[in-house]
Each structure stands twice: as structure tokens, then as C-alpha cells.
């Protein structure tokens, strides 16, 4: 890792000011993607601005129809929250399936959502649960937020403050993990919202990162059951392919995981 200068601002305004006035800055949250990236010298920010001392970035609020989570909240805290488990068990289970125990003690929802790794878990929940991303300067609907691999609508210096999920009528999450890295090779988050609309978000598989599988949504709108998805396939040209799983295998997994998510509504199915 190259030399860098560390900052620990205590307010949002101070963090943004540091970012604006620094040459080659980067925000740091749990660091469980960023620090390995710095150690392998794939990035070399001159200034690291740690956001974990800013009080607005913490806290969980569960209302009648929303679950709102501060961006610096760790995965372990989300997974352990009884309130979240009662409101959206699939979201709670998703948080508890990220990485391993030690990773969940450091990694944060904001870090995962801001980084938008194509194999990260949270982006699937954000998109499927029709979330609103609150930043230091505006609100962004999930639909407009994800813009391709490691790319989001966040402007340089913009800080994700909290994620506001719509509590669905029911949701399920199914994930097939890479047996070595434990990252998703294909995962599907299926939600039926209270107004009846269905959202299916796929992570780990698409060559443009997380995406909505609209064909599956249409079939599930007519018949909300795994049987409705029998025979539905996805074009492998939309899939990532690598040494772990070629595109056609990932396409197959997307269909299987989506059916499994529907078969496991109200929880998760982690393989």
C-alpha cells in the first residue's frame, strides 16, 4: 500500500470539505473492499477520509412501511437487529450471509452500496426493495442509482447517508456462492410490494452489475409462484463469464436462484 494521509471528520460538512479541498481523496467506511484494493496497489488515494465518526451515518429506524439504515451500519448490526428481522427477514438474512463473521464486524451497508461491486449482496436488496438512497445533498431512487460495474449516481464527494427500504408484503433472497471467495456467483432478491408490484433483482451474474430481471417480474405478476418461472431463461450474453463460472452457467444459476427465492419467501436460501 502506498503512503496516504488519514482523516477522521466528525461532521458531514467537514468530510465533504476535506474531500473537496484534497488532491486525490477517497472516503473510507468499513474498508473491506477498499483496503484490499489499496494493498494490491490498484488504487492510491493521497487522502483517506474515514466517515465512521459521523453520527448521522449510524442508526436503524423501522416504521410501519419502511426500514431505514444509516450507511455506516455494519452488516453484523443489521443481521442482529430483531426489528429488521421482523420487518424484512430476507434483508436480515442477506446481511448475515455477507462474507464471514469477521468481515460482517467491519463491512458497512453504505460501503457496499457505494462501491457497487457486481457480486455484492446489498445492491440486490436496494433495487428489489425499491429503496431511496439519501445522500448529504439529495435523494436518489434505486432505479437511477446503479449505473454499471462499480458505478453509481453518486457525484465525486457525495456521501451516502442512509438507505431507506420499502417494507414489502413479502421477499426472499437466494444466493449461490463461489465456494472459495464466498461472493455471489448468482443471487436473486424477489419482492412483492404492498401495491402488488413485483421486483426481481439479480446480483453476481450480470455483466453490467446488479439488474432487474423484468421478464421474471412479468411472469410473477400473473402467477406469484416458482412454477410460473419454469422454462424461463436469461440470455447468457448479458452474463459475466470468468474462470469460476462461464456465462451460460451463470445464466442457468440466475433462473434457479430466482425460483429458489420464490420458494423461500420470508427468508433466505444460501448455497
Amino acid at each position: 500500500m502506498y503512503a496516504t494521509t488519514y482523516h477522521k471528520p466528525k461532521t458531514l460538512a467537514e468530510a465533504v470539505k476535506l474531500y473537496t479541498n484534497s488532491d486525490e481523496p477517497s472516503y473510507l467506511s468499513g474498508g473491506h473492499t477498499l483496503i484490499p484494493t489499496l494493498k494490491s496497489r490498484l488504487a492510491a488515494p493521497a487522502h483517506l477520509i474515514d466517515v465512521r465518526n459521523i453520527p448521522e451515518l449510524f442508526g436503524i429506524e423501522v416504521t410501519a412501511d419502511k426500514v431505514i439504515i444509516g450507511s455506516a451500519t455494519k452488516h453484523a448490526v443489521v443481521a442482529a437487529s430483531g426489528e429488521i428481522k421482523a420487518a424484512i427477514p430476507a434483508l436480515s438474512g442477506l446481511a448475515g450471509s455477507i462474507g464471514d463473521v469477521q468481515v460482517r464486524h467491519m463491512g458497512t451497508i453504505g460501503g457496499s452500496t457505494a462501491n457497487n461491486d457486481p457480486a455484492a449482496d446489498y445492491p440486490a436488496a436496494v433495487l428489489s426493495l425499491d429503496a431511496t438512497l439519501h445522500t448529504d445533498r439529495r435523494e436518489i431512487p434505486a432505479e437511477d442509482y446503479f449505473q454499471g460495474l462499480y458505478t453509481t449516481a453518486l457525484e465525486p464527494g457525495e456521501i451516502l447517508v442512509r438507505v431507506e427500504f420499502k417494507t414489502p408484503e413479502i421477499a426472499g433472497y437466494a444466493k449461490f456462492r463461489n465456494p472459495a471467495s464466498r461472493y455471489s456467483m448468482a443471487a436473486s432478491f424477489v419482492a412483492r410490494h404492498r401495491d402488488g408490484h413485483i421486483r426481481v433483482a439479480i446480483t453476481g451474474a450480470g455483466n453490467e452489475g446488479v439488474f432487474r430481471w423484468t421478464e421474471a417480474e412479468e411472469l410473477l405478476t400473473v402467477n406469484f409462484s416458482a412454477e410460473a418461472l419454469e422454462g424461463l431463461t436469461i440470455d447468457p450474453s448479458r452474463m459475466m463469464g470468468d474462470m469460476h463460472a462461464p456465462a451460460d452457467y451463470r445464466a442457468h444459476l440466475v433462473a434457479v436462484m430466482t425460483r429458489r427465492a420464490v420458494q423461500n419467501l420470508g427468508g433466505t436460501h444460501i448455497l
Partner: peptide
């Protein structure tokens, strides 16, 4: 491994197990 996968560097930070190869010392001040 030095890449937060193997867990050999696990310590307790404020009472929780974490991988100390992926935490900055300054952040643990």
C-alpha cells in the same frame, strides 16, 4: 493471506473478532 480471507490475523477490536490485516491502525486509535 494478508487479503482478509484466511483469518490468521483475527483479534478482538472493541470486543468483536475482526481481521487485523484489513484495519488501519490509525482507524483503531
Amino acid at each position: 493471506c494478508d487479503t482478509s480471507q484466511c483469518g490468521a490475523c483475527t483479534i478482538h477490536l472493541d470486543g468483536e473478532a475482526v481481521k487485523s490485516c484489513t484495519v488501519l491502525a490509525v482507524a483503531a486509535d
